[in-house]
Amino acid sequence: MDKKDKNSQINLRLVFQELKENPYKKFNIAFSLMVVIPFLVFTYLLAGRFFSFDILIGNIGLILLISFFISVCGFYVGYKILKNILNKIIFYAAQAKRSDQIKSTFVATVSHELKNPLSSVKINLYNIYSGFIGEINKDQKHIIESCQNTIERINRLINDLLDLHKIEAGAVDVKRKLCDIIKISEKQIIELDAALNNKDIVLAKEFQGEVLSVWGDEDKLSRVVNNLLSNAIKFTPDKGKIIFRLYKDEKFIKMEYVDMGPGIPSDKINRLFNKFERLDSEKEGTGLGLAITKDIVEMHRGKIWVESSLGNGSRFIVTLPSDLRVITR
C-alpha cells in the first residue's frame, strides 16, 4: 500500500470514528428503498395489467428484456456515481480533520520548541545584565536591553500566532457570562496607565452610565479593549489625546477609540485587519493584534471597522450585541 493509500485509510478511519457508524450502510439502504421498491411496484402493476406469457415471445418480449436490462444498468451507474460523490465528500472531510490535527500538533510543538530556547536566552541575558558573570559597562547594558526587548517581541508573536490559530480552528473555549464592559475597560486603562504616562497622552473617557452589560467572554473582551487602546496609544504622538467612548445604541453596545495619529491611507484600510499587516514597520507589533481582535469580536457576533483618512487620525468602532437572544440564536 503506498503512502497516499495509507493516508486515505487513516483519514477514512478518523471520519468513521467521528460518525460512529458506517455511512455507506445507510446510503445503500436509502438508495435501495428509493429505487428498487418503486421499480418493483411499477413492474407489478404493469405485469398485473398486461402480463401474459405470450408477450415474452416475439419482438415485444425482446424489447421488454432490453429495456429491463438498460434500466438495471442505469440504476447501477447512478448508484456508482452517487457513491463516488459520497466517497469524495467523506474523503475531503477526513483530510480536513486530519489536517487540523496535524496543524494543532505542529503549532503546539513549534511553540514548545521556540519558547524553550527563548527562555534560555532570556535567563542568561539577565545573568549577564545583573553582573553575575562580571562587570559590564553602560553600552553593553544597552545592547542587552535591546536583546531583551527583541525576546519579548518574539514571545508576543508566538503567543499571538497560537491564539490566532486556536480562534481560526474553532478550538477556543469561550466562557460566556454577563460582563460589564465599563468595568473591563477601566481595568485595561489601569494596565495601560504607564504607557499613557510615558507619552504624556490624555485619555478622555466618555462612558454612558455606570454599567453596560454584554453577554461574552470577559478575558477575550479584555483583550479587545487592550489591543485597540494599545494601538491608539502607539499611533498617537506625545502629548496627544485619545477619546474612548462606550455607549448603548439600541440593541448594541458601541465602543469607539478615537486617536489623533497620522491616519490610515485609504488603500490600506481594507487590509488593516489582515494577518501580519502593519501600517508602520518601525512601530512595535506583531501585525496580528487587529486580526485577533476582529476574530474575537466576530466570535461575539459583533462588528469592527475603522474610519480614517491621512492626517486626520482614526476612529475604531466596535459593536457588540447586548441582547442575549442575538448571541444564542
Binding site: 524553550n116 530556547p117 527562555s119 534560555s120 536566552v121 535567563i123 542568561n124 539577565y126 545573568n127 545583573s130 553575575f132 558573570i133
Partner: peptide, 15 residues
C-alpha cells in the same frame, strides 16, 4: 534537559 537553561538557572540561583 536543556543545557543552556540549566546553566542560566544554576548561575541565577548560585548568585
Amino acid at each position: 534537559d536543556e543545557k543552556e537553561m540549566l546553566l542560566g538557572l544554576s548561575t541565577l540561583l548560585k548568585h
